[in-house]
Design a protein around this nucleic acid. Structure first.
Length: 586
RNA sequence: GGUCCCGUAGCUCAGUUGGAUAGAGCACCAGAUUCCUAAUCUGGGGGUCGCAGGUUCGAAUCCUGCCGGGAUCACCA
């Protein structure tokens, strides 16, 4: 149950009544009316701006209109009172009995708490990671991987039909380099002395197993053979091994894909989809032959002005038109990506999400332009750029040099701190802000560390719910309490009410996070919820009567167990969206 | 030089798609443990929301122009 939607519907009914009575204009715009928690909880439980938004058109002062709306609202059973404040806000206070409904909803076995149908089954494709299949995942891929996966989980939870896809860049020159590097390792595995890895090939040791595997597969058939004979075989073979390795790395982070889409498949089908896409766009008048101006202010030394095949990206919001063919006539990466996105559109997705690294920020406009052009603006493309992660150890930057091959792999990070920590920290920040990841800090067991803090709240609840008290309450299993049989009206302490109110926000947070494609909102909410729990927990230090286990009072203890159960359910649910495991013991 | 992102407390960051007196954590200061986990909690000080205009009942939030930081800039992927 979404509290704000619930009362939003109430409010809407009241406003429609007023419209029928002629108080509001027949065409009054109700879409700007919001129903949300007031900033200051002292104002009440729910606030609406309805009177302020609608007053002008109704020819009334906001406060006068508010009086009329309040009359309607106060007729509702769940509303204790409605006040008018400031320029015309209406603050509603919910009856205390209403809060019990929240707890019952949270623990209702017939529905999933927090799940939303806001997505209405709409098909969404989340493309993320898409790292080149030329080596293991390194730490730079980590954030996008976690972000994309959490976003997919979030959208799924919010009622979208989500597909997670990995685009394999297996068609460019880099996979030929991979094949040559693997071939060299193959010769090495055959016992040849290969010396230093030549400039331009991948030096990493991770290719040694590929070399050995190639010996098993091919024998010495390709020793001394000309490159044109072995290159295609070695390319396919090593890409496949690299993808296996990448899948393993992702698995370690608790990430799985629904689909892997090969760039090469665009060219190798019955029809070449890249040519086909270009032909289609040409027919639509989206393509011309022309020359581009050099970049303003910074003319590259080797600027070669020539005629190119160009997409009219500027007609769709881009800054310049974009080249589809290289000097040698082959397709640009962008051309392939256009064909790929056309394929996504044709598969019937109504929303596309691309999760990219910061180095692709310059790519956003052209891709949006392409999707607009190809879908006649019917398909939305949202590009989420994940900014850089700065690795630190004890506050000092961790040095990395990709050139020497000594970069830090994703697997090393996961092995050191654990997938749950990596995931939570990466999600405890907006995707478009850069992030510091300090190996020491993220493993601290203190409130300094948000992962720990939230996990600890869950473990604390677990310690109560699974406590056996044979002397106090023989036969009572707090983890098995049936909420509908408890007297929830006993939860009347202000601290308890605050906790329930915090719980009540959860469904709304889920919807907001899903609508904005911002999973970090879930992480921050969980931190706040954990904080409220710890606060209330410690009230029991000075006031023993507030402890969750109320000695000698089975009814109060039962009601509080329901509250704890609802909080634990919410924490576990939110962590589930983030792909983090709730722990029961620390 | 163009484009995109960022700029909020000493530091790291939230900020409910335009709402009321702008919030957390860290750090600093002062406190709480016969008690369900003190791995926690309570209180305190700390702000020109980068700057200047504009839009309106109302702006940290939207628009324009500046300033500062980062990423990126035909033909690589």
């Amino acid at each position: 149950m979404n509290l704000f939607r619930y009362f939003g519907n109430h409010l809407r009914a009241v406003l429609e009544d007023l419209r029928d009575q002629g108080v509001l204009q027949a065409d009054a715009d109700l879409s700007r009316v919001t129903v949300e928690p007031p900033r200051d909880t002292a104002h009440g439980d729910i606030a609406t701006n309805a009177a302020m938004v609608l007053a002008k058109k109704a020819g009334m002062k906001p406060r006068d209109l508010a009086v009329t709306i309040v009359e309607g609202l106060e007729r509702l059973d769940d509303i204790e009172k409605a006040d008018i404040a400031g320029p015309g806000f209406i603050n509603m206070t919910v009856t205390s009995s209403f809060w019990s409904k929240i707890l019952l909803a949270a623990l209702d076995p017939g529905q999933v708490w927090g799940r939303s149908d806001t997505g209405r089954g709409e098909k969404v494709l989340v493309e993320f990671v898409s790292a080149n299949p030329t080596g293991p995942m390194h730490v730079g891929h980590c954030r996008g991987a976690v972000f994309g996966d959490a976003l997919a989980r979030l959208l799924d939870f919010a009622g979208y039909d989500v597909t997670r896809e990995y685009y394999i860049n297996d068609a460019g020159a880099q996979v030929d380099v991979l094949a040559r590097s693997a071939h060299l390792r193959y010769l090495e595995a055959l016992g040849e002395e290969i010396g230093d890895i030549p400039e331009g090939l991948y030096p990493g040791d991770y290719l040694k197993p590929v070399g050995s595997a190639a010996v098993e597969k091919f024998g010495d058939r390709y020793r001394g053979a000309v490159e044109s004979e072995w290159l295609p075989e070695f390319r396919d073979f090593s890409i496949s091994m690299m993808m296996d390795m990448i899948r393993d790395d992702l698995e370690a982070l608790n990430i799985r894909f629904d689909s892997f889409f090969s760039e090469r498949s665009l060219k190798e089908g019955k029809v070449n989809s890249i040519d086909d896409a270009i032909a289609e766009m040409r027919q639509m008048g989206l393509i011309y032959e022309g020359t581009l101006p050099p970049p303003k202010g910074k003319k590259p030394d080797d600027w070669d002005e020539r005629e190119q095949t160009l997409f009219r990206a500027t007609d769709f919001g881009d800054d310049v038109d974009r080249a589809l063919a290289k000097a040698d006539g082959s397709h640009t990466y962008f051309a392939a990506d256009i064909a790929y996105h056309r394929d996504k559109i044709r598969r019937g997705f109504s929303t596309l999400i691309d999760v990219l690294g910061a180095d692709h920020s310059g790519y956003v406009k052209r891709m949006k332009a392409a999707v607009r052009a190809l879908s006649d603006d019917t398909v939305k493309l949202d590009v989420k750029i994940c900014q850089l992660v700065h690795l630190l150890r004890g506050g000092k930057p961790v040095k990395m040099s990709k050139r020497s091959g000594s970069f830090i792999t994703l697997r090393e990070v996961v092995d050191e701190v654990g997938a749950d920590v990596v995931r939570f920290i990466m999600l405890y920040r907006k995707n478009d802000a850069s992030l510091d990841f300090d190996f020491d800090r993220v493993q601290e067991q203190s409130k300094d560390n948000p992962v720990f803090y939230v996990q600890y709240a869950h473990a604390r609840i677990h310690s109560v719910l699974y406590r056996r008290l044979p002397d106090e309450f023989p036969g009572l299993d707090m983890g098995q309490i049936d909420p509908v049989r408890e007297d929830l009206a006993l939860l009347d302490d202000p601290g308890e009410i605050l906790l329930i109110k915090k719980l009540a926000e959860y469904p709304r947070i889920v919807e907001q996070a899903a609508n904005t494609h911002e999973p970090h909102r879930i992480a921050f909410y969980l931190y706040e919820l954990a904080s409220e729990l710890h606060t209330h927990w410690n009230r029991g230090t000075e006031k023993p009567e507030l402890r969750f286990i109320s000695v000698g009072n089975r009814k109060v203890t039962g009601a509080r167990a329901v509250l704890l159960g609802a909080i634990a359910t919410t924490i576990a649910s939110g962590l589930g969206i983030l792909g983090v495991h709730p722990v029961e013991e620390m």
